[in-house]
């Protein structure tokens, strides 16, 4: 493991009961890197993300976060580690009984010493970053799917997390919002030094933001290509990777 590796995945095997989804996954994500997990639908990208954020225990293998084995530490310590992550789920996963402001306020109240006035200021700022200034008092049911997703991102960024995980961030967003999200991801990396892990198959977005990537294959059930997507596009000889990256059949 290098000194700069933020996430280190070793021999990870993922399974639902006896059905293996992916096996022998080995890769590292460096500090401040935008890392993309690619692959066709149903290959286990989102399942891998669930393992990385501490929602699913590996069938075998290890997930190291800053050198700490996520699944070999007590629950309290694991909770401490994962609370430093920000996760944007596919549908936003906003708590439906709370307003957007309350959604963002919850992690701030739990893990920071800010007073209520400061919390409100952070909420306004985070919502403005995702183009939702003034929507503090709206409930998730009162806004569109794309807006929910952006509000989910604002919540994920609430505590300026060390690592941001995105599950299909561009899905359901219009092209302009999608492009703005790409800009925001790059800005978060550059200004805050955040590590960003993205599950995506949006090529435009992948080529814009990714520093590094892996490609999962559902038949081989493992990584069949790794490296910066632009490099893979030029050098990969695997027809599955080529097809994916050039959008051909």
């Amino acid at each position: 493991m290098t000194m700069t590796s933020h996430l280190d995945i070793r021999n990870l095997t993922m399974a639902y009961s006896d059905v293996i989804i992916q096996k022998n996954l080995n890769f590292t994500v460096s500090h401040g890197e935008v890392f993309v997990i690619m692959g066709g639908s149903g290959c286990g990208k989102s399942t891998l993300l669930r393992h990385l954020v501490g929602l699913m225990e590996p069938s075998s293998g290890d997930v190291f976060v800053d050198g700490v084995n996520l699944w070999r530490v007590p629950l309290e310590e694991r909770n401490q580690i994962v609370s430093r992550n920000g996760v944007l789920y596919q549908g936003g996963a906003l708590w439906s009984s709370m307003t957007l402001g309350e959604n963002i306020a919850l992690p701030l109240n739990e893990y920071s010493n800010l007073n209520q006035k400061q919390v409100q200021e952070v909420i306004s700022y985070k919502l403005s970053l995702v183009g939702l200034a003034g929507f503090e008092d709206y409930y998730p049911s009162e806004i569109s799917g794309g807006m929910r997703k952006r509000a989910g991102l604002a919540r994920a960024m609430a505590l300026d997390p060390d690592i941001l995980f995105f599950d299909e961030p561009s899905a359901g967003l219009d092209p302009v919002s999608s492009r703005l999200l790409d800009e925001l991801i790059l800005e978060l990396r550059d200004s805050l030094g955040a590590t960003v892990v993205i599950v995506s198959h949006e090529l435009a977005s992948i080529f814009t933001v990714a520093d590094n990537s892996i490609f999962l294959d559902p038949d081989e059930k493992t990584i069949i290509a790794a490296g910066p997507p632009k490099e893979l596009l030029k050098t990969s000889v695997d027809p599955r990777v080529k097809q994916f990256l050039t959008r051909t059949i």
Partner: peptide, 11 residues
């Protein structure tokens, strides 16, 4: 995924 969102915040 609201429950997942709580868990990944350590709550």
């Amino acid at each position: 995924e609201e429950i997942d969102a709580l868990k990944t915040m350590g709550i």
